[in-house]
Design a binder for these strands. Sequence first.
DNA 1: CTGTTAGCGCGTTCAC
DNA 2: GTGAACGCGCTAACAG
Lengths: 333, 333
Amino acid sequence: MGPSSPKSTITDVARHAGVSLSTVSRVMNGNPTVDPVMAERVRSAASELGYTANPLARSLVLGRTQTIAVVVPDLGNPTFQAILRGLSRAAAADGYHVLIADSVEDDAEEAVLAVETRRRTDGLILCAPRMPEHRLETLLADVAPVVLVNRAPRAGTPAVAADYRSALREIIEHLHGLGHRRFAYLSGSPRSASNAARLAALEDARAAHRDTAIVELDGGVDFDAGAAALDAVLETGATAVLGFNDLVAMGLLSAAGERGIRVPEDLSIAGFDDIPFARFTSPPLTTAAVPAAELGARAWAAMHELLEGRDPEPLQTFTPEIVLRGSTGAPAS
Amino acid sequence: MGPSSPKSTITDVARHAGVSLSTVSRVMNGNPTVDPVMAERVRSAASELGYTANPLARSLVLGRTQTIAVVVPDLGNPTFQAILRGLSRAAAADGYHVLIADSVEDDAEEAVLAVETRRRTDGLILCAPRMPEHRLETLLADVAPVVLVNRAPRAGTPAVAADYRSALREIIEHLHGLGHRRFAYLSGSPRSASNAARLAALEDARAAHRDTAIVELDGGVDFDAGAAALDAVLETGATAVLGFNDLVAMGLLSAAGERGIRVPEDLSIAGFDDIPFARFTSPPLTTAAVPAAELGARAWAAMHELLEGRDPEPLQTFTPEIVLRGSTGAPAS
DNA sequence: CTGTTAGCGCGTTCAC
DNA sequence: GTGAACGCGCTAACAG
């Protein structure tokens, strides 16, 4: 049992140093109103016993846990993984811990997890919540302080988000410039705000180009969903496909390859997110680079402001950069 | 403010129901020795106030937090992401929460995080700890209950691990069968136990095949490290390369492609882990499928046993399945 | 400057 | 069956 054995309590240290509890507490918390020699005596007693204040007890009395909760819809999604990574590292740099919860794309579970994890922490970061608007609205009041990632903010709830609408708009514009006039869009989680933003981009494009048709197809959020959508895509006669995200686009790309469909000659395919492996598909995937880790870091920064009693910006927006790669090109005909 | 507002305490409920604190506590914990009508009165008061017992206070008095800590070397590594996902979902299914810490491949920070997160939780799961053996040894005593993932276990510390040695051995065997006699191995984190296991596999292969040479090259753990290793690899004259993991192999594969080196004709490349995107490189990557999510789930299962006072198996081993894809083939000459 | 006291919110003996 | 009292380990008022 090393000196870091965490079994000793503040009482042990007090007795060992021949002082009162308060004095130990003062020393451990760097309170300067303590006699230097006495302080030293306490310190050596503490280190001899390997004493560290029990975080639980401190949390109870101080009313803060130095921990925040993060709820994500899917820990298997590269974008949420990147958000979590950026968030976790930023929080750690400020001495905070992270309690993680994965709702597995279940929007009922999402609210439960939010409340439950929030109670054990000082604040909550909700990533791309799938729950309906009214549910979210009532939830937010109960879990403050809370920061939203990739979902429209409302009064009192700061948010950080990528501008999916502009970015998708840019992708479409580029493809239109290449000559595409018939598009298919593979929609993702219907309840996600970013899907709504993408749909708005489609509307923008339709309004800007009366010669252009965009067919919306029900899709999913993962690789298999994209692969399964191939037949539906072909039926639309589209020359270019916009995937909900890179995973979906990669699934479609893969299925197209197996079917002998040439990309981009027969079909242009664009993804969204620029996950780490988007550049390794064949052909490499055109996509929009969402700075996920940065999003996570900013979400923490906003939460940190809230925790310190300051006012963070209500909304921080990042416009993803379009990354043109080999999966898109001019239509063959 | 909805009914789930978590501001009320057990005292509020007691007053509201006209009973004592103890009675409320009994009702909330399902203690049957309470008059049914009184219990009902308490329950309605509780739901009216949106009361839920403060988890912190419960943790302090009960001595358990319903939370476990997980320390990983790198949240950006797909394998650890998968372990975390499997772990988190398994723990959630048993009503436990997960506190996550990312050591960012810093083995000094690793020990600090382990102790620090352990104190706020009921147990610790250490994933592929990079710290030296003696440091780990003394740490383990201080953080029990603890479960190791992908590092050799010792008395009193259960572990779950993939058998890297056998799997790499199999890959080499396969390549040797194809005619390869000169190999390069791109080593990863020198402190990781799985790197040691891989080196043992190289020894096995050398002993089994006196006609075979395997050159060890210092590499890293990520894509860029693999790409940077190309020149060194070419200098060895190897016809086949064994990457520390898929990331490294993919980096090399990509660099080779840009240099006009044909894979597998000029160079066979094998990875390790079978991360989700290994099948999407061009050519698709030969690798060994480490069941990472399963590893995580089993790690939780072992921890759960520990928490319930039972004895989990000291070591659960999984042998990764070899997945042969297009990045390996017979040497050209 | 230091020790004593009173909670933080809850579970749990222990008497009634 | 029920309530009063104690303690989990700690911090912060309050006296001295």
